[in-house]
Design a protein around this nucleic acid. Structure first.
Lengths: 213, 213
DNA sequence: ACCGTTATGATACTCTCGTCTCACAATTTT
DNA sequence: AAAATTGTGAGACGAGAGTATCATAACGGT
């Protein structure tokens, strides 16, 4: 066994060589298909990317792996968001302004991801599928903890955490699902509602803390 | 063709006869399986209910139809909720107190329903599946419009609608998904956070309206 | 009791997903 | 150039969902 660079099936995407090339081809194809609205199966990506089914399955053993990879790409700008505004109000506004358009742009991808996490939850309930990590890695938690960080000292840690939890309800794909699909709003209106709600929640937490002192 | 009472495969559940009996048996079995956590396929329900696969498919042509029917049962107490409290604050609190425990009780069912609606959305995006009604019939909209009804006159209709839309973000399965699965909260804590957020939103809308007069 | 309707069960079939095996092509190593 | 390694394609295979057909059991009216 030599020290070649392809030991694990799905290697780091930063690598070179034919494997990385094919993987990127498939990933780009999958991303394109997803942004066009459909949630492609592995076979569909294989056909669109003009590789054989067998090859496609070598890189992405399931639709879940495929969606997972596309989500990681779509998540990029959101994870890079700089949590540097001075106060919580502007931080949450800035976060929503950054994240929501991106989520809307990749709506199909994020919805597919949510669907997968529901699948995994159901399978776990059923007893199948041990306690592997759930699909949803809580990026939301970290982002919102940073958003509420400036409030440290102005309220109890419990109140701050509750605020972060409440804010997580108005920040994510779910918002788009509810406001666009049920209410029939546009993406812009949905974002505006989310921003209003977020501001209301932050204000309420601050006001409540001031009243208690 | 005579005028007998079983023209459509899934007849009104209030009817009598062998069809209604088998249907109820399957529905109860499906509900039981779902509350135990799993989202059964039609075949699984058939086996559990001790009817043949063919018979099962006669009543519920797909897993979607099955989940749909179970959701309708699970929704019962929520749709029966009496919107009769005097003001918006108590109405939303009352609604959450009624609905959230029920949603938590049938968590697997509602998650399965959400999964189905995501499926249908994806299929519609893909061009397949014409514009049939989406799975999510907006019960939320009607309930929350009634919740905000007492505010009529105290603010602009736009503000009231925005409040209803914002409230819809803190009322539904999504709340449980985010707070239980991502934050690791208990159902009780989740409900408490939802109630806090709902109160904050209503207060913000009212306060804002008062400030504008 | 008879006959037609209706619900059911058994079975075979199609389709798709995902797995597996084997043969071939491309590339690298010696 | 020959040989070994590695990526790819083609096709077989099994599992599961959903459909369709046919035979039989239960029910209902005359």
């Amino acid at each position: 066994m030599n020290v070649s660079r392809q030991q694990n099936g799905i290697a780091n995407s930063a690598e070179r060589g034919p494997r990385a090339r094919t993987r990127k081809l498939m990933l780009d194809t999958a991303t394109r298909l997803m942004q066009s609205g459909i949630t492609p199966s592995v076979s569909e990506v294989a056909e669109a990317a003009e590789v054989s089914r067998a090859t496609a399955y070598r890189y992405f053993p399931s639709q879940a792996a495929l969606v997972h990879a596309v989500v990681d790409e779509a998540l990029g700008p959101i994870l890079d968001w700089s949590c540097e505004r001075p106060d919580a109000r502007t931080r949450i506004a800035d976060l929503l302004a950054t994240a929501m358009p991106r989520i809307d742009e990749f709506e199909a991808t994020f919805k597919a991801a949510l669907k997968l996490s529901l699948d995994q939850w159901a399978q776990r309930q059923a007893g199948t599928l041990g306690n592997e990590p759930l699909f949803t890695r809580g990026h939301r938690v970290d982002l919102l903890k940073c958003v509420t960080a400036p409030l440290q000292g102005t309220m109890t840690p419990e109140s701050r955490e509750r605020l972060a939890q409440a804010l997580s309800l108005v920040f994510g794909v779910e918002v788009l699902i509810v406001l666009k699909d049920i209410w029939g709003l546009t993406a812009e209106r949905a974002q505006s509602v989310a921003e209003w709600a977020a501001k209301a929640l932050v204000d309420a937490a601050i006001r409540q803390a001031e009243g208690e002192t």
